[in-house]
Every structure is written in structure tokens, then in C-alpha cells.
């Protein structure tokens, strides 16, 4: 982008956002500091870390896991992570014979409250379309090759219902603390495009 003078320039899109925000501030509907706090919360604080702690708790505490699978929203709330979106959540458990993948083929509904903001590819049309039609092919592109006998289940989110995948607990993690376990839970493992990190496999 070039400027023909030494003055400032805002793109049309930036002008639209600025205009909307300043009108809302003038009307007393929006507090700029509150907007910054939201951006900060979703960009840095929530991230996928809340979700990772939920998964780590489920791996370590069978009673919590049972609660989580029966009533995900209440179980997640019980850890202090409330969903501001007011939607129901369902946790899908991966097992040696079933692998779950989540997608929103219509737009990109995503459990922000526990996973932070969605990655760009999740919002892309190719992912949305192909995850439904060819989930094994998509998983392969993410580097996840599933044995033919593993059933792949694709879950299409709606505005009222969001999904989180409960990945399998990696082998060799007996005796790990919840904190250590949470480190193994990647964002993608809760979307279903990869498994939780294997602590014995080194970095990859």
C-alpha cells in the first residue's frame, strides 16, 4: 500500500470498523477498554488453555470425566470457565476405535470460551467442505493417519451446539500432574485434527 502524501491513510474497512466503534462509544453502548479486554482475553488468556485444562482434568478424574460427557456445559462451568455465548456444548470422547472431528460446514461456530479464537483454516471453505466429505483425507493432510478399522465421526456444529473433542490420553503419562497433562493437549487435538502430544515422541 502506498501513500501519495505523507499523511495518514485508513482503508475503507478500517474506516468502517472505526466508525462503528466510535458511534457505539458515543451512544454509550461500548466501552473501548472493554473491547480491548475482550480482544486480550480471546487472544491471549483463553487461547486453547482453558480447554486443555478441562481435558487434563477429565484424564485425571473419572468422576469429572463422567460429568463432562453427560453435561459438558455444567462440567466446564464447574471449573469456572463459563461460556459467554450461551450455547450448549457436547464433549466427544476419542477411543482406540472411534476418532471424532468437529467442523461447522455452514459458517464457523466454535467453542470460543474454551478454545479461544478459531484458527484461519477452520474458517476456510475447503476445510469446512472437505472435513464432511473426506475426513480421512483431511486428517492425512494434518499428518494423522488413522487405521482403516478406526471409525471417523464428523460433527457439524450449529449455532446452538458446539463440540469439543476429548482426545485419548497418551501412553506413558501415568503419574503426570494435571498441569503436565494440560501441556500435551493441543488446540487441534480438541478440534480433532490431531492427537494429543505424545510426551515420549519428542518434538515433531
Amino acid at each position: 500500500m502506498t501513500n501519495h502524501d505523507d499523511h495518514s491513510h485508513l482503508s475503507d474497512t478500517e474506516l468502517r470498523v472505526r466508525s462503528l466503534e466510535s458511534l457505539l462509544v458515543d451512544k454509550g453502548l461500548v466501552d473501548p477498554a472493554a473491547l480491548d479486554a475482550i480482544v486480550d482475553r480471546y487472544e491471549n488468556k483463553v487461547g486453547p488453555r482453558n480447554g486443555a485444562r478441562v481435558v487434563a482434568r477429565a484424564w485425571s478424574d473419572p468422576a469429572f470425566k463422567k460429568h463432562l460427557l453427560e453435561d459438558a456445559s455444567a462440567a466446564i462451568d464447574s471449573l469456572g470457565y463459563t461460556s459467554t455465548q450461551g450455547v450448549d456444548m457436547l464433549v466427544l470422547e476419542n477411543t482406540p476405535s472411534v476418532h471424532n472431528v468437529t467442523v461447522c460446514s455452514l459458517c464457523s461456530c466454535y467453542p470460543w470460551a474454551v478454545l479461544g479464537l478459531p484458527p484461519a483454516w477452520y474458517k476456510s471453505f475447503p476445510y469446512r467442505a472437505r472435513a464432511v466429505k473426506d475426513p480421512r483425507g483431511v486428517l492425512r493432510e494434518f499428518g494423522l493417519e488413522l487405521a482403516p478399522e478406526v471409525e471417523v465421526r464428523v460433527w457439524d456444529s450449529t449455532a446452538e451446539l458446539r463440540y469439543i473433542v476429548l482426545p485419548e490420553r497418551p501412553e506413558g503419562t501415568e503419574g503426570f500432574t494435571e498441569e503436565e497433562l494440560a501441556e500435551l493437549v493441543t488446540r487441534n487435538s480438541m478440534i480433532g485434527t490431531e492427537k494429543a502430544a505424545n510426551p515420549n515422541a519428542g518434538d515433531s
Partner: peptide, 25 residues
């Protein structure tokens, strides 16, 4: 396509602003 944990979620600040305005309203 970000394949790691650090893929950008907002490409530009205005995207984050638009998101935050929507959530606030």
C-alpha cells in the same frame, strides 16, 4: 495454513475489533 499452536487468529487488528464489538453487543 497454520498447523501449529501459534497460527494467527486475527490477521489484522480491525478483525479483532469487529469481533469484540459483536461480542459486547
Amino acid at each position: 495454513l497454520p498447523r501449529d499452536e501459534d497460527g494467527p487468529v486475527f490477521r489484522e487488528p480491525w478483525e479483532a475489533q469487529a469481533f469484540a464489538i459483536t461480542l459486547t453487543l
